[in-house]
Each structure stands twice: as structure tokens, then as C-alpha cells.
Amino acid sequence: MSVVVGLRPLKACRIHQYQGPESVQVEQVDLPEPGPDQVRIRVRAAGMNNSDLQTTYGKYRGYGHQGLPQMLGQEAAGEVEAVGTNVTEFTPGMRVFGHVAGAFAESALGPAAELLPLPQNISFEIAASLPIAYLTAIMALVCKAKLQADEWVLIHPGSGGVGTAATQLAQLLGARVIATASSDQKTNYLRALGIAHVLNHTTQDVVTEVQKITEKKGVQVALDGGGQVTLPQCLAAIANEGRIISYGYTTGMAATLPLVNLIGRNVQLFGIALWYNQDYRTTLTVLRDLVIPAIVKGQVQPTINLVQGLERVSQSLLQMEQNRLMGKVVIVP
């Protein structure tokens, strides 16, 4: 039997058709009951991601997809309201954060195995901005690239949710960071985060500039979030025996790579999908044991661009589509 605290009407963001951000509706739905291994959370804040935008077009049907109508949102922070019969590590009233399906709602369900306890001195808004961005950055830089102190890492682009998380994680690990962005406003934003080497990839030749900065040695690690345009640039900027990790394709999915550069320089190329990866459990551990303490100490400062209510989800997704955002958008029901 589930432990339930106070049933009530529930507002949530859903789509009934794949027509982009304008198809998002705020409507009343039934309060969900947790399954045996689930936790129901009173959502205090939820993080927005590019995958939420792609979902509104039917281009992303990843983890938890059950067809239309579809709830939006994949990460949240809040208080435990109810737990399933198999859940022993969480009890009603506890502060938690992590992967939560249908997070753009007043309450939502998350797998107990993918939630972490939230310290009192970290806000719900900050916690909601962490899971997808930082877990992706951890999987890329720690699990796959095994980034070492003093290595050069190119984060291309670096001003979005995953990009800003990766720049801060890389600095926490002692690496030397080169980050890119698409405007002077965004490059200034990255410099304010303490990134010494920032490139405007719309006005500067990324590969040429990387070679200058690294004295023609190239970077040991490159994190690619753009795909078609940025992945070939990452390969051109990589050092011998370097590691490239690709996690996104905002510039297109059909990247063409010169194999002579990949093979001739013994480059490792990883493609990562967060929830389908064997290292997922490790990323949760690193988030808990490395990133959370660093946030408490002020060594890492998660970047939040906007905090909006449920009624602004559609507009926020549109801003994301227009590439007008820096850092994360957080939704507060």
C-alpha cells in the first residue's frame, strides 16, 4: 500500500498534438499514485531541457514516453508526498531531487532509484536545474573522457544548460577550459563564470583559435552538443589520442567526419544517451558525492536564466527554440 499525504486537484502541462511549444496546455489531471518502486513528489521546482522542446514536435520520445497526451518535464525537486510499497529510503516530507517524469506539474512521479536527498542549504530551484545537465556532463567528462587535471577541454557550445554545467565541472576537476557561445552576450556570460578562454563561434574560427590557445597541441577532450556543425570542428581541434563526447545535435544530425583524422590520431569518439547508459548509476553517485558538496561550498554555481510558472512553459520553450537563453530555465508550479 502507498503512503499518501493529502489528495488534491493537480495542474500539469501536457501536449495533445506535436505542434511545437504553442501546443502546450496547462490543465487539470488526476493525481498519480506511485507504483511499487516510485515516489510521488510535491514539485517545488522543475528544470527545462532541450528534450522538452523536441518532445513538443514529436522528435524526442525517450525515457518514459507513453504517447499522447503527454506530460512535459523530466527533472524536479520537491518534497516526498507518497511512496510505493518497495520504497524504504524515502518517507513523506523528505526533500529530494532527480529524474521525475511529467515534472511540469504540481505533483509528479519519480523512480526511487533515480532520486537523491536534497540538503537543506540548497534551494529547490538550484536542485531542479541539476539532474539532466550535470548528469550528462558527469557522464561525458568523468565516465567517458576520464578528464584529468591540467588537460585542455573544449566545450562546444558552452552557454546552455549542459554546457555551463560542463564548464563548471571541468574547472572543479582542475582542467583548462575553452568554451564557445553564439553571441557576445553569451561569451560575456561565460567569462563571468570564470572561463578564461571563450570563443564566439559565429565570428571566430573555433579550430584556429583552439590551436592558438593550446600552442598547436589541440585539446585532449572535446564535448560536442551541436552535432552536424560542431562535431567536425571538435575532431579538427582534438589532440592525438584525444576523446570526443557527443551528446546533442542542435545544428543537425547528419555530421560528416574525415576518418583519416579520427583513425590517424587514435581519437576516441563517444555518443551518450543519459538514461540508457551503463554508467548512469555512477553519474548519480558523482552528483551526490562531488557536485552537491561543491555547491554547498560555493565551488560550483549552477546557472539559472529564468524562473517561470506553469503558464509560461510554452513561452519559455519558444525562447529556447530561438536560442535566446543562457543556462537553465526552472519552472515553479
Results as ranks from 00 to 15, higher is better:
residue 1 M to C: 09
residue 1 M to V: 06
residue 3 V to A: 13
residue 5 V to N: 09
residue 12 A to L: 03
residue 15 I to G: 00
residue 21 P to L: 02
residue 25 Q to K: 08
residue 26 V to Y: 00
residue 29 V to H: 09
residue 29 V to Q: 10
residue 33 E to S: 15
residue 36 P to F: 03
residue 38 Q to A: 11
residue 40 R to F: 06
residue 46 A to V: 02
residue 50 N to S: 14
residue 52 D to I: 04
residue 53 L to D: 05
residue 63 Y to M: 15
residue 70 Q to V: 05
residue 81 E to P: 06
residue 82 A to V: 03
residue 83 V to F: 05
residue 85 T to C: 09
residue 91 T to N: 12
residue 92 P to E: 01
residue 93 G to A: 04
residue 94 M to L: 07
residue 101 A to M: 12
residue 101 A to H: 11
residue 102 G to Y: 00
residue 111 P to N: 08
residue 112 A to Q: 02
residue 113 A to M: 01
residue 119 P to F: 06
residue 122 I to L: 03
residue 125 E to N: 13
residue 126 I to A: 05
residue 137 A to F: 01
residue 140 A to L: 00
residue 144 K to V: 12
residue 146 K to P: 07
residue 150 D to Q: 11
residue 151 E to C: 01
residue 152 W to M: 10
residue 153 V to N: 08
residue 158 G to S: 04
residue 179 A to P: 09
residue 180 T to M: 06
residue 183 S to C: 08
residue 187 T to N: 01
residue 188 N to D: 10
residue 188 N to F: 07
residue 188 N to H: 11
residue 189 Y to G: 07
residue 192 A to Y: 09
residue 192 A to R: 12
residue 193 L to K: 00
residue 195 I to D: 08
residue 201 H to L: 05
residue 203 T to I: 10
residue 203 T to M: 11
residue 210 V to Q: 13
residue 210 V to H: 13
residue 211 Q to L: 14
residue 219 V to C: 11
residue 225 G to M: 10
residue 230 T to H: 03
residue 246 S to H: 08
residue 248 G to T: 04
residue 254 A to Y: 13
residue 260 V to M: 13
residue 262 L to E: 12
residue 264 G to S: 03
residue 265 R to I: 05
residue 271 G to S: 11
residue 275 W to Y: 14
residue 277 N to G: 09
residue 285 T to N: 13
residue 286 V to P: 06
residue 303 T to Y: 09
residue 303 T to F: 11
residue 304 I to N: 08
residue 306 L to V: 13
residue 308 Q to H: 15
residue 310 L to R: 00
residue 316 S to P: 11
residue 317 L to Q: 00
residue 318 L to D: 14
residue 319 Q to K: 14
residue 325 L to Q: 07
residue 330 V to T: 05
